[in-house]
Structures are given as C-alpha cells and as structure tokens.
C-alpha cells in the first residue's frame, strides 16, 4: 500500500509530468486560458491515461515480451492510444451527447498528447505491475490536472494585468511555469 502511495505522489508531485518531465506542454499552454476548459481537459486526459495503461500493460506483458518484440512498442502504443481515443469519442458521442459537446474537442487533441504516451512508456521502463501502472496513470493525470488548473487560474488573472507588449501571452506563461516549476522542485526527495 505504501508503495502505491509512493508511486502516486511520485508521479503527481515529484516527477510532475508538466513541470518536471515537460510532457503535455501543448495543452498546458494551449488550453490553460480558461479554468473550465482546463478542468475538462485534465479529466479527459486522466481518463485516457487510465484506459491506455490498462490496455498497453497486457499487450506488453502477454504479447510483446513473450514474442521478444519490445522494439515495436512505439508503433503499438501509439496505435493503441489513437484507436482508444477514437472508440471513446464514438462511445461518448452515441451515449451522452452533452458530455461529448463538453469533452469532444479535447479528446481529438489527446492522441498527440505526449503525456498519455509518456505514461505508458514510463510504466514499461519502470517495470510496474498492472495495479502499479494504474496508480501511476492516476497520479500522472492528477498531477497534470493540478498544474493545468493552477496555471489557468493564474492566466485568467494575467489577462487583466498590465504587461509589456512583448511579454504578453506565451512568454509570460513560460515565466509563470518557471516559477511553478521552482515551487514543485521543493517536492524533490519527499519520498
């Protein structure tokens, strides 16, 4: 149990995907302008991360490793993620249209989100068991959501603040990310 907690905290805070591992930066800077969008996006990403980890784990351990074909993992993982995103999109569109209109556009973006692919690669590299993989996906998603929501709160305030023209938009977002990264580096060595 403590191992699982350590993995969760490690993925969410110490090795935060956005601020420490630089994964999922496109949505981090693209979608983090409004709080509600940021929240929807992080929920969608967490869900896809969990699904992707749940599917890639058996594929890796029951197909790729016995066949000695681990070099195929890049191709296999990206195909699994792309297919999964399509299935989830279709499923939500048919079953719950209001949810689809809220999450739909984010799902399409998730295929090329390196955070999802990153989780599956980290799970394999660390040699996690199935339960550990799920916990690590949940932790990565939570950490991603946490910084995305924090960032969007800060950016909503930045919109109305006086800044030099050359700092507006992306440059100041990078500087805010740098400060958040410094704050998160305080978590290093916690576990």
């Amino acid at each position: 149990m403590t191992d699982l907690l350590a993995i969760f905290i490690g993925m969410a805070l110490i090795n935060n995907f956005v601020l420490v591992k630089f994964l999922g930066l496109c949505p981090f800077f693209g979608v983090s302008k409004k709080l509600t969008n940021a929240f929807s996006m992080s929920m969608a990403v967490t869900f896809v991360m969990l699904m992707a980890s749940a599917v890639t784990w058996p594929i890796t351990h029951y197909i790729l490793i016995p066949l000695d074909a681990e070099y195929l993992r890049t191709v296999v993982y990206i195909l699994v993620i792309a297919t999964l995103v399509q299935i989830i999109e279709l499923f939500i569109m048919r079953t719950n249209y209001s949810l689809y209109s809220a999450f739909g556009i984010y799902l399409a973006l998730i295929t090329t989100n390196c955070a999802v692919m990153g989780v599956t690669l980290v799970n394999t590299d660390e040699g996690f068991t199935f339960v550990e993989s799920m916990v690590s996906a949940l932790g990565a998603g939570t950490g991603f959501g946490l910084v995305l929501v924090l960032m969007s709160g800060i950016r909503e305030r930045l919109e109305i603040s006086q800044l030099p023209d050359s700092m507006k938009g992306l440059p100041v977002a990078f500087l805010v990310a740098a400060l958040m990264g410094l704050a998160f580096s305080g978590f290093a060595g916690m576990v």
């Binding site: 050359s166 992306l170 400060l179 990264g181």
Partner: peptide, 26 residues
C-alpha cells in the same frame, strides 16, 4: 539545469525576440 530553468530560458528568449521584432506579438 533544473526544469524551471528551461521554462525561464525559453520565456525570456521569446520575450527578447518579440521586443526586437523578430517575432510578432500575440
């Protein structure tokens, strides 16, 4: 060398390029 330094470096570079007019402002 820390992750924070990467954000700092790219943010400042971007701001300088915009100031010099190499890149358009938002």
């Amino acid at each position: 060398l820390l992750p924070a330094g990467a954000f700092l470096a790219i943010g400042l570079l971007l701001a300088v390029f915009r100031k010099w007019g190499l890149i358009k402002n938002d």
